[in-house]
Amino acid sequence: MNTQTIVTALSAVRAQKPLVLNITNYVVMNNTANGLLAVGASPIMAHSRDELAEMMAFSGALVVNIGTLDSVWIERMRFAVEQANQHGKPVVLDPVGCGASSLRTETSRRIAEAAECLIIRGNASEIIALAGAEAGSKANGKGVDSLDASEAAVDAARYLVQHYRCSVVISGETDVIITENSEFRLHNGHAMMPFVTGMGCTLSALTGAFAAVGETTGLAAAAVLGVAGEIAAEQSAGPGSLQLNLLDALYCLDAETLMQRLKLTSSG
């Protein structure tokens, strides 16, 4: 995948305005919905089992975010994944806080196992915890925050790609995107971004938008958010203004700016 492919994917999202169904946590619903709108997609937050089957039939992708997990939501998440499989829709799993509790870890693994077209987006500690002992490394997370650098999770991500036949996005200071055949590293973004809650969750939601138009590696979403985050940070005094400026940057991002600012390397 080259820069032009990322630009083309962004144009496709804006032209097609895909509907992205989110089963996501209470903390980030507003952030992720606004992020999807700003990039050109259409968000819907659906949590009732009574409507999930109907909605997955016409949604472009499903985003499952376990940030505020409970037993009722777990069953609904599983059902939504079943419906996504039935309709051939991609599933983005955000294993928020995976490793912080056995409930989060086990639920993440069950969702990953069930999804037939899967993209996993998490921070390094979440990715390492999701892979478990089989990947040969130990996570160093603190709740939903990562204490591991992205490179520390590369082997774990490679294991997940093979085990679940998926793509994996490790977000951090460097975003690492691993697919069955390639590895990409993005060096965009800004040090202020982790001080805004739900930034990773927004990336997961955007990943769903791009997956809905056929870009299922997770790379385009990470590239767009990273560049937009850089632009927003340059105009922001702190995290509060960054949240507002990020939406503007996503909305205004054009092909020329994206191509000029993108810092992308690949292998494989």
Rank of each mutant, 00 (worst) to 15 (best):
A12E: 12
D148S: 12
A211M: 07
L36V: 08
A156M: 00
T68G: 01
R110Y: 12
G200Y: 03
M1N: 05
A38P: 04
T8D: 15
R14C: 05
N181Q: 14
L206D: 00
D70H: 02
V168Q: 00
G40I: 07
V196S: 06
V224Y: 12
H163V: 13
G35Q: 09
A152C: 13
D155S: 13
R110C: 12
G40S: 09
L69T: 04
D70C: 02
I66D: 00
V227S: 05
G67M: 04
G97E: 04
G60E: 02
L118Q: 06
A233G: 04
L36Q: 07
L225C: 11
I74D: 05
A223S: 15
D50P: 06
R78V: 09
Q162S: 14
L10F: 12
S42A: 15
G214C: 06
R49E: 14
L103K: 07
E106M: 07
G132T: 04
D50E: 14
M77H: 01
V64F: 02
T257G: 05
E126T: 10
S266L: 10
L93E: 01
E215T: 09
L93G: 00
V20Y: 02
T107N: 01
P239H: 07
N181P: 10
A124H: 10
D175S: 13
T105C: 02
N140L: 11
G240W: 03
C166T: 08
Q243F: 14
D248M: 13
L186H: 10
F195T: 15
N34A: 09
L52S: 08
S71Y: 03
S267A: 13
A112Q: 09
S137K: 10
A38L: 05
G189D: 04
A124Q: 10
E116A: 14
L160K: 03
D254W: 10
R158T: 14
Q260C: 09
L186F: 11
R261G: 02
L52D: 03
I120T: 00
F58L: 15
S241R: 11
G141R: 03
A249M: 01
L37M: 14
T197H: 12
L253T: 03
T197S: 15
M56K: 08
Q83E: 13
A124W: 08
F195Y: 15
S71G: 02
V224N: 11
S167R: 06
L10K: 06
V196T: 08
A220W: 06
P18M: 05
V213E: 03
G99M: 04
I111H: 00
K263T: 07
A255M: 12
L242T: 03
G229L: 03
A156P: 00
L253N: 08
N245I: 02
L219C: 11
A211V: 04
A228S: 10
D94S: 01
T265Y: 13
